[in-house]
Design a protein around this nucleic acid. Structure first.
Length: 907
RNA sequence: GGGGAAUUAGCUCAGCUGGUAGAGCGCUGCGAUCGCACCGCAGAGGUCAGGGGUUCGAGUCCCCUAUUCUCCA
């Protein structure tokens, strides 16, 4: 990018020939600095965290949180990472300040019970001053108020000027992971853009002068529920250096946005809008910055397998995408541009994140799809707003603006903009009030669930060693009972009839995971050599709690005690069926990639005993023809009898070999690779057949959509195919019998029956109406003349029964009669719609204009008649319908109606 | 997790406070034209998402379910 003048007079400290630091170079320098100090260099974890209670990776240490909390083994004594992070809590500030981002990278070095304050401080200083070449006179450090130890190290060992060591309170320099748990003081390093202002009264909050770029957390205490601090047995170091901030400092630009980590995206967006960043006004600059920031965020989110949706992280992605589109419009970009922005983002970040390149087609497709969707939303909103404006209101109310926003996703700013074009204002205060109300509602509903609740099993599991799993090779083996849980509490023994959770030291039972269900089987007393007391425990399923396998079972006979040695035996037939489905799932993924789209990847999977379910990212439905080809391909592979090769290898090697990994899944360094040579290679911990021939047959049962952009294929394989076919055959047989047809003829028979039915229904309706009309015409002659005065033209009153006519036809008849009889006609028809059922009375009245002029209204009139038949009704003054339940009263009611008409018309 | 909205002809949508389901585009046929586009006339096409309820009567009101959209967390 072009060199930009620094905002501050720091330029005088630049020495000629000084190294130019690109963002990539800064990252590399950090990681290799710590790698040279025995840190294991780990790749950035996914933005989608393993912890299901956390929406996104919001900090560099998040992937290590379970390690710090003692819930997971440490990956190494020391580690260093560059972690991608997403934060959206103060999204409104993005682009308005120099440093707020939704997407950023956190460089970090970590010590898990290894080195502590002295090394952390020394290395941080060395890295900052010697590697990055920052002038010590331009650095300021902060320490926690009570942390004399850290202050001493800075002063004595490093030699920092005491005036440039600032003590801070808990709010700024004491780190906690939650109300309880590990915590400790921090120490931060700040860069001073204006060292010439001296050392007196330094205010680190002044971010026009200072920027914090390195935070060192010294985790040394555990805080209990009462707030007491006790020293930790293993003290940890957790640090974070904001990559964008360091780039801002080293590249001497006024904000993070002008570093080479983001600026190329801003330039891309500006070019698309036909403007330049330098000449843009403040509002457009802000929009450009938002696009630059969000462009990185959305690209990385999609690459990590997030797809836009209306909940959870999918919703965060959607919101970011829509903000990009909106700001694009604000700076004058017309038409679709997200794919081009995404393309630039991939190219920009590709050097550090090669997987972006692999996912390029999927990322661009998602961007395009989502942009299109948002444009449709905007169009709909504009239409609705136009309707509101058409009523020429004095202003747009808060409720109206909120409805547009809340229900139809139409942004407030756009409502304001369009209203302004019509010379109207929007009640923003009312809008905010409605929004606040909605927030309160959501909050009130949220407290009802308690995320901190942990079951007894989780507590037990946390204290145990991991279970050794032997089930890849063995289906039966002796094992020792190391824990028992019934009714949520740890027990010494369980008796016949008890439902119990059992942990064994080792087990052949597969624990539910990776989509595959847990094994079923039996634990029996004793071993082959020493038969027990007839103990039998049936196992219905096995869950995994971290690496501890919990067998859920029921004691059928005997007594199960802690410490017992039992024989654990997996149900072979169930296991075989699960294995067939699991291998078939791998074949399915491979086949879908070949037939439908190479970009297809898994979004979820279920491997059960009687079926398999595979969810995958795919923007459209898979066609029937494609499904047929997928089936053929898979059955071909099955009959080719491929022998599976399962081996363990280093993650990097597996990836290099082309093994399919799940996005967002975190893998250990050594992974298990399931290889169907030439067909499919996946990282997988599940159990599989030894040879594809064992699967026997594969049959797709259903294809459907689960969510926008996600499709689901359900299938059966192996032994599970037979029951499926039998069930289907049963249906066909029953149909064949009922239709007295050969199975192959059923479809034709049904459709011809349908046509016949439709035709005869139509004919019947037409005939009925025709009949009703002709009977009605015959009735016309029976109309009675009612005269009010001798010299006046008489009214024509017709009251009659007309049976077997549906409401609609009856009304047609009455209207036609009324028309024939002229504008002085009053027609009332009534009858049973079904002559055999006195419970369904239909009544119709049709009055000519002159009758209405006499104050008689068909609606009210027919209502009164219907009430005599136990019903009610109404309609318009000229024509009305009614009904009742009491057919026996119909004649009297009609007679009454005739009387009423006479009286009403001759007065 | 909690709100709001939508679902009507192949497509885009009307359908006001319950009273025989409509429009535009598309489709088919006929007319007009040397032929096409345009145009004129006629026609086909709907268990109003599914289920339950209220009512004499429900596309319309109420409840449940499904799908989609959307906001909040």
């Amino acid at each position: 990018m072009a060199a930009r003048p620094p905002r501050t007079p720091a330029a005088d400290s630049v020495t000629p020939g000084e190294r130019h630091w690109t963002g990539d170079a800064i990252r590399e320098a950090f990681l290799s600095f710590y790698a040279a100090r025995d840190h294991v260099r780990l790749p950035s974890a996914s933005l989608v965290p393993e912890d299901p209670t956390v929406l996104l990776t919001i900090a560099g240490m998040l992937p290590f949180k379970p390690v710090f909390l003692g819930q997971a083994p440490r990956p190494a004594a020391r580690a260093t990472t560059s972690q991608k992070c997403i934060r959206t809590n103060d999204i409104e500030n993005v682009g308005r300040t120099a440093r707020h981002h939704t997407y950023f990278e956190m460089l970090g070095n970590f010590s898990f019970g290894d080195y502590f304050k002295a090394e952390a401080i020394r290395w941080a200083w060395e890295l900052s001053t010697e590697v990055f070449g920052l002038d010590p006179r331009q650095l300021v450090v902060s320490v926690f108020r009570d942390d004399d130890e850290a202050a001493n190290i800075w002063r004595e060992e490093i030699g920092v000027n005491p005036k440039r060591i600032i003590r801070m309170d808990e709010a700024d320099n004491f780190w906690v992971s939650g109300p309880t748990g590990p915590c400790g003081p921090c120490s931060e390093i700040y860069f001073d853009f204006q060292p010439e202002r001296g050392d007196e009264g330094l205010n680190l909050e002044d971010d026009s002068r200072f920027i914090e770029f390195y935070n060192l957390v010294f985790m040394e205490f555990n805080r209990d529920a009462e707030g007491n601090l006790t020293p930790l047995a293993h003290r940890n170091i957790d640090t974070g250096m904001g990559l964008e901030r360091m780039a801002q400092i080293l590249q001497r630009v006024p904000s993070n946005y002008e570093t080479d980590l983001i600026f190329p995206l801003i330039e891309t967006a500006a070019a698309l809008a036909g403007i330049t960043y330098d000449s843009a006004d403040a509002r457009r600059r802000t929009s450009l910055k938002v696009i630059g920031d969000h462009g990185r965020a959305v690209t990385q989110l999609i690459a990590d397998g997030v797809s836009a949706s209306n909940l959870g992280r999918g919703y965060i992605l959607r919101r970011l995408l829509r903000r990009v589109v909106r700001h694009g419009r604000l700076i004058g970009i017309e038409g679709s541009f997200l794919p081009r922005l995404g393309d630039a983002a991939i190219t920009l970040m590709r050097p550090a994140y090669p997987q972006l390149e692999e996912r390029r087609p999927a990322i661009l497709a998602e961007l395009e799809r989502e942009e299109e969707r948002f444009l449709a939303t905007l169009e709909r909103g504009e239409r609705l707003l136009a309707e509101v404006l058409a009523s020429q209101p004095r202003q747009i109310t808060g409720a109206q603006a909120f409805e547009l926003y809340d229900t139809y996703g139409f942004p407030l700013e756009l409502t304001e903009e369009i209203a302004e074009e019509h010379g109207l204002s929007v009640d923003v205060a009312g809008f905010e009030a409605a929004m606040e109300e909605q927030r309160q509602r959501a909050k009130a509903a949220a407290v009802s669930i308690d995320l901190t609740l942990q079951g007894a099993l989780a507590v037990v599991a946390a204290e145990l060693e991991g279970t050794v799993f032997t089930g890849y090779d063995a289906l039966e083996q002796p094992a020792c009972v190391v824990a028992l849980v019934t009714d949520g509490a740890s027990r010494e023994q369980a008796e016949a009839g008890d439902s119990v959770g059992i942990v064994l030291d080792s087990t052949p039972f597969y624990g539910e995971g990776g989509g595959q269900v847990g094994d079923r089987g039996v634990l029996s007393g004793g071993s082959a050599e020493t038969p027990g007391d007839g103990l039998i425990v049936s196992i219905e399923g096995v869950n995994r709690n971290r690496s501890v396998f919990v067998h859920n079972g029921r004691v059928e006979r005997g007594v199960l005690r802690l410490g017992d040695v039992v024989t654990a035996r997996v149900d072979r037939s169930c296991r075989r069926r699960a294995q067939a489905h699991h291998t078939a799932t791998h074949l399915l993924q491979a086949a879908l990639k070949l037939v439908v789209d190479p970009a297809i990847h898994q979004a979820g999977s279920l491997v059960d005993f009687d079926r398999l379910r595979f969810d995958f990212h795919c923007p459209r439905a898979v066609t029937v023809e494609e499904l047929r080809r997928v089936e053929e391909l898979i059955n071909g592979w099955i009959s080719d009898a491929h022998a599976l090769e399962v081996r363990e290898m280093a993650l990097e090697r597996a990836k290099a070999a082309g093994a399919v990994a799940m996005f967002g899944e975190k893998y250990t360094e050594v992974v298990r690779v399931v290889d169907v040579p030439g067909v499919s290679m996946e990282l997988c911990g599940g159990t599989h057949v030894a040879n594809t021939a064992e699967i026997g047959l594969f049959k797709i049962v259903a294809e459907s959509g689960v969510a926008a952009g996600i499709r689901r294929v359900e299938a059966v394989a192996g032994a599970a195919v037979l029951p499926y076919l039998n069930e289907r055959e049963g249906v066909v047989k029953a149909l064949a019998e009922r239709f007295k047809a050969q199975p192959a003829e059923i479809v034709e028979r049904v459709s011809s029956l349908q046509e016949e039915l439709k035709a005869s229904q139509k004919a019947l309706a037409a005939a009925r109406e025709e009949l009703a009309l002709s009977r009605a015409r015959a009735l016309a002659a029976t109309a009675e003349a009612v005269t009010a005065a001798p010299d006046e033209e008489p009214f024509r009153v017709l009251v009659a029964r007309l049976e077997g006519v549906e409401g609609g036809a009856l009304q047609t008849a009455a209207q036609e009669l009324a028309e024939r009889l002229g504008e002085r006609a009053a027609v009332v028809l009534g009858g049973l719609s079904d002559p055999g059922d006195p419970g369904k009375v239909h009544l119709v009245a049709a009055f000519g204009p002159a009758v209405i002029g006499r104050g008689l209204k068909a609606g009210a009139f027919i209502g009164a008649v219907a009430r005599m038949c136990g019903g009610g009704g109404g309609g318009r003054p000229n024509v009305a319908q009614a009904g009742g339940r009491n057919g026996a009263a119909l004649n009297d009611a009609l007679e009454q109606a005739r009387e009423d008409l006479r009286r009403g018309l001759n007065s």
